[in-house]
């Protein structure tokens, strides 16, 4: 049973790393939000499930944390994207210069 938890933790760590890498590599705010939200949400949820398999008595709190992440993460990213659109941020096209972070 414990190797399933290990695999889930590894998947979570890999996706969190990919999210961080994407945040650094992507050219503009919208693509960075893609990396920062989707990969990080999947990574943290996989990590929480892994921890839940490792420690079965923590399930209720972990479930609540998962619910909270699933609720707030898309909310935050959509709000940031909307704010960027409102102030007139243009999406990146091929050939444009990469924005400085």
């Amino acid at each position: 049973m414990t190797w399933i938890a290990d695999v889930l933790l590894l998947i979570g760590a890999a996706f969190l790393f990919l999210g961080a890498l994407g945040l650094w590599r992507m050219p503009d705010v919208y693509t960075r939000l893609q990396a920062g939200t989707k990969a990080v949400t999947l990574g943290s949820v996989a990590m929480l499930i892994g921890v839940g398999i490792e420690r079965p008595d923590w399930w209720p709190k972990l479930l609540l944390i998962t619910l909270f992440i699933l609720l707030t993460s898309p909310l935050g990213s959509s709000t940031v994207a909307r704010a960027a659109r409102v102030i007139g941020q243009r999406p990146w096209r091929a050939g444009d210069a990469k924005e400085t972070p």
Binding site: F68, L71, L75, T79, R82
Partner: peptide, 15 residues
């Protein structure tokens, strides 16, 4: 504020 933020704020308030 957008629709998503308004509804999300309503949803999160009791939480």
């Amino acid at each position: 504020a957008g629709f998503i933020l308004r509804k999300g704020a309503d949803l999160m308030f009791p939480f």
